[in-house]
Design a protein around this nucleic acid. Structure first.
Length: 205
DNA sequence: GTCCAGGGCCGTT
DNA sequence: AACGGCCATGGA
């Protein structure tokens, strides 16, 4: 028996399908714009309530600077110009720096999100992890939701649920990621939905 | 007023 | 390798 697969089925039955429920990354980001939002959001939501991140998007849209290119151009002039846009996400000085580097990576190194999708998963993961401010969770969130790569995201909610369900007490990122990978079909749509369900269930209290 | 939220960096041991 | 302090805001 496969506890991981059972967990998916259980969550899907109780909360699913996730399509349309979850904030941004739940809608299975389709357009380029949505994918860029995922990338920006992945940085801004670090250790932060999503509600505070939404305020940033409102602000960015109001100012007309809500794309990777727009943020990159603004940050290049003066990184401090990003502060007011992202202030409400907290840790805004660090995040301005992190966000700028990520935007720079996609704009300059990758020539856009579309091109980045064409890169090999291992290669681009290494490149993302090399950016300051991008750890495994942030990198994998970008890979899974923006670049549609089949890689499972392990976040706080995931660690909590596997512990609660008696699946594992091991908190190690790599261990848990491997556990999901080896027990599921390698399919980014499945990974997106599953992770969305974990978050949805985690947020119900 | 206090607590907490999709992390990650950087020193110190 | 592991651990702790740090980064900041807004809602409950």
């Amino acid at each position: 028996m496969n506890k991981i697969k059972s967990l998916y089925e259980k969550l899907n039955k109780e909360y699913g399908p996730p399509e349309g429920q979850w904030k941004v990354w739940c809608k299975r980001p389709k357009s380029l714009k949505e994918k860029e939002e995922v990338i920006i959001g992945a940085v801004l939501t670090q250790r932060t309530n999503w509600n505070n991140v939404e305020k940033c998007f409102e602000k960015m849209k109001k100012e007309g600077i809500d794309s990777l290119r727009g943020l990159y151009d603004l940050g290049k002039k003066d990184i401090k110009k990003l502060f007011p846009l992202i202030r409400s996400s907290g840790f805004y000085r660090s995040k301005a720096d992190y966000l700028f580097r990520v935007c720079e990576f996609f704009v300059k190194e990758c020539n856009g999100v579309k091109k980045a999708q064409g890169k090999k998963i291992d290669k681009i993961r290494e490149e993302l992890l090399g950016l300051k401010g991008v750890g495994k969770e942030t990198a994998d969130s970008i890979l899974l939701y923006a670049l549609e790569k089949p890689i499972f995201v392990i976040d706080e909610y995931t660690k909590r649920i596997v512990r609660k369900e008696g699946i594992s007490n091991n908190d190690s990122y790599d261990y848990l990621q491997n556990l999901f990978h080896k027990n599921l079909f390698k399919n980014w749509r499945l990974y997106q939905d599953f992770h969305a369900l974990i978050v949805i269930s985690g947020q119900k209290k």
